[in-house]
Every structure is written in C-alpha cells, then in structure tokens.
Amino acid sequence: MEKDKNPVLEVNHLSICFDLANGQQAKVVEDISFSVYKEETVALVGESGSGKSITSLAVMGLLPIPPGRITSGSIRLNGQDLLQMKQKNMSSIRGNEISMIFQEPMTSLDPVFKVSNQMIEGIRRHQAVTKREGFAIALRMLKEVGIANAEKVMHEYPHQLSGGMRQRVMIAMAMANNPKLLIADEPTTALDVTVQAQILRLMLKMKREHGSAILFITHDMGVVAETADRVMVMYAGQIVEEAPVKTLFTQPKHPYTAALLQTIPSLDSNVNRLPSIPGTVPSASQLPNGCRFAARCKHAMSICSEKQPEIMQFEHDQQVRCHLYTEKGEMVSVE
C-alpha cells in the first residue's frame, strides 16, 4: 500500500455531538480516526444513523452548528487542519479541494437555474476564468461524464433531466475543479440498478483521470465490493472495523461486519427471507457503557456490556474494536 505517503485526508479522534432540545446530548460520532490516500477509494459503511453522513458533512465543514458540535479531534486535508480554519477560507476549499455528491439527484440541484449556470458558478468560484471559459470547462466536464448531448443539457433545467443524468451532472460539477477528495454520500441509492452500475463505473473513471481520492459513504455492501479499496465499518458513531476490501469480505473480524455481510443476498443460496440483524442501533443519546453492538451480538460475553473494547491491530492493515480479540488474542472464526 501507499501508507508511507502522506494521506489526502486524515481524520484524528473526531467526536461530534448534537445538543438535543431536551438538554440531552447525542454522541453521533465518537473518537473516529481514519485516513484516505491519493487515488484510493475508501468506503464508510454503516446502517442509517451510524454517523457516516455526519462524518462526511464534518469533513466538508457543512455540519449544522448548532445543534451539532465537534467536541474533539482534527480533520486534516493535506496536513492542513480544516477545523481550525475560518469559514471564509473553508469555503474556498469546499468544492475546490474537497467536493461532494449527494444521495438525492432529484432534489440536489437548484430547480430554478439552468445546468450551465450552476456548473459555471462552481467553476468560477475557484478558478479565475471568464464566463465563456467557464462554460467551456463545464461543457467538457459534461462530455467527460458521458452526456452525449452536452450542449443541450447545459441549457436545460434539472427537472428536464432523468435521475441518472442529474447524478452525472452532479459528478461533473463536483469534479470540475479537480478536487483532491471526492465525498460520495450514497450517490447511487436513489437510482435504478442499471444506472447504479454506470454511475459507479463513471466515478471510478473520473477518480483515475483526475487523480482524486474517494470517500464513499454507503450502506450497500454490494457497492462496496465493486468500488472500494479499503472499508471502514461504522456502528453507532464508532468505527468498529477497518480493512482492505478483500480482507474484510473474506475474513471479517467484527461480529457486526460478519452480520452485515450475511445480509447480502446471494444467487447461490436458496433462502426465502433475506437475513437481517435482529435489534436496532442504540440511540445516540442513550448509548450503552460497554460495546455498542453487544445487545445485538451473537458472541456477546459479560465483559461486552461492561467495558468498551479498544481498537486492535491485525495483519493486512485490519483493525477491529471487539472484546473477542482483546481477551483471547485469537478467536474462533466469526460466522
């Protein structure tokens, strides 16, 4: 791996909490650390409410503050601490060095401005070009994301485009300033399955051509298998396992990861009902003292509900937060 090089994005011990209306605090993200390296695709996987989208918004500097609050940690982009940065400086990084595409292509574009206007706006915000040059860049980007009639699309409004087309426009917009990091927050969830595959391939192509890194946020293990180099599994605000994609799929160490992998429907297995993980994610305002997955874990021991497990390092860059390994060193394989 390229671990010896400096990471594009380095998140260190990041904790985020939300102040609730009733005076309680919801710890939505707790003490997460990860890095994303150049030209790497890192997937952040978890159920809804696991804190993965909040993490991405924090990286973008778009966390709603208040009620959100970053209680500790740092987010570094090429060594520069984004959390110490003034709003004004942060906005010149946003859309330039880090950009983002979102889950809902249908609602993520401004309905009352043409595609050209919205694209040129972003380009001219970060590049000193004329309107005409901005238009040319936008047009080139649209062609690059595989829009055949790019000239026509430039002059259209978002509602005139299909969901897949809009997501292509979003990608073109996000890549127009050659960002070092692209955050994709469930970019294919709202799309048809056939379009999903096209968009995923397109993102990987754009990543290669522009030399960016991708932080891919998803709950879809199938998408992870297709795109990611490395995977981080989030549960209730913590990263419970991190591993290269092959390792994660062949030797999942955390019981939650194993359970997630079992929820992927397979063509070979003959099941009537898709497997699911019993129980629900604990509420971020009422987190248990011990391991957060303990209540749903098949392998839960007495220590699991008493003490939080620490992160353990394994070979092949695998990290796991689970008592099964802290107590015994090596455990029976998790199935």
Partner: peptide, 26 residues
C-alpha cells in the same frame, strides 16, 4: 432546508450568494 442548498454550499459558494441568488429566487 432543501437539498440543493447543501449542494451549492458544497461548491464553496459564499453564504451571501447562496441566500440572495438561490434561496431567494426559489
């Protein structure tokens, strides 16, 4: 609260433009 506002902010557009160009027109 709309999604498109988040998109515009994610492009680094300054808040004044977000409010007076996009939000106001909508």
């Amino acid at each position: 609260r709309m999604d498109y506002v988040r998109t515009i902010r994610s492009k680094g557009i300054v808040e004044r433009v977000v409010m007076y160009k996009h939000v106001l027109k909508n």
